[in-house]
């Protein structure tokens, strides 16, 4: 076991609580139930990320929050041998990826994997949830089982 450090342990209260913007509130509310919602522009018929209260394509504000499949693929990945500052990330080394969700949006997520160095571009992942001390959850990426 590694010694307890000030690196920020996901299981303790010193975890950074992400600030919550008005535009992001529906996402964080659903995260309390471990549900992944994405903002969709109704006229454009497309999801976007990150939430900003309007559609980045047409600038319209007819936004609907819809459940996501929770599936995605690693677009790019980098292993972090250290945390940038206490309270974020995981126990180093850990992988951080840009994940392309099935709904066509790209999200930055930590990949919770036994071996961070094994996470590769194009790997299939699914969304998992890490509890935060205020009842919300932080989305993470979980490697999908490799095809048999």
């Amino acid at each position: 076991m590694s010694e307890r450090t000030d690196r920020g342990d996901p299981t303790t209260a010193d975890r950074m609580l992400p600030p919550e913007s008005p535009a992001g509130a529906p996402f964080w509310a659903a995260s309390r139930e471990r549900r992944l919602l994405l903002p969709w522009c109704v006229p454009c018929g497309a999801a976007h990320w990150y939430p900003r209260g309007f559609c980045p394509v047409c600038l319209g504000d007819e936004i609907e929050w819809r459940p996501a499949s929770g599936g995605g693929r690693v677009h790019a990945v980098s292993v972090q041998p250290k945390v940038p500052f206490p309270g974020v990330g995981g126990e180093p080394p850990y992988a951080v990826a840009l994940v392309d969700l099935d709904e066509g949006v790209r999200m930055m997520l930590r990949v919770v994997a036994d071996d961070a160095w094994s996470v590769a571009v194009d790997d299939a992942v699914s969304i998992g949830w890490e509890p935060l001390s205020d009842g919300r959850h932080l989305p993470v990426a979980l490697p999908s089982d490799p095809p048999a």
Binding site: G24, W49, Q80, V88, G89, M108, R110, V140
Partner: peptide, 8 residues
């Protein structure tokens, strides 16, 4: 809100 918590 969306990037830093993941520890990049």
């Amino acid at each position: 809100e969306w990037d830093l918590p993941h520890g990049l």
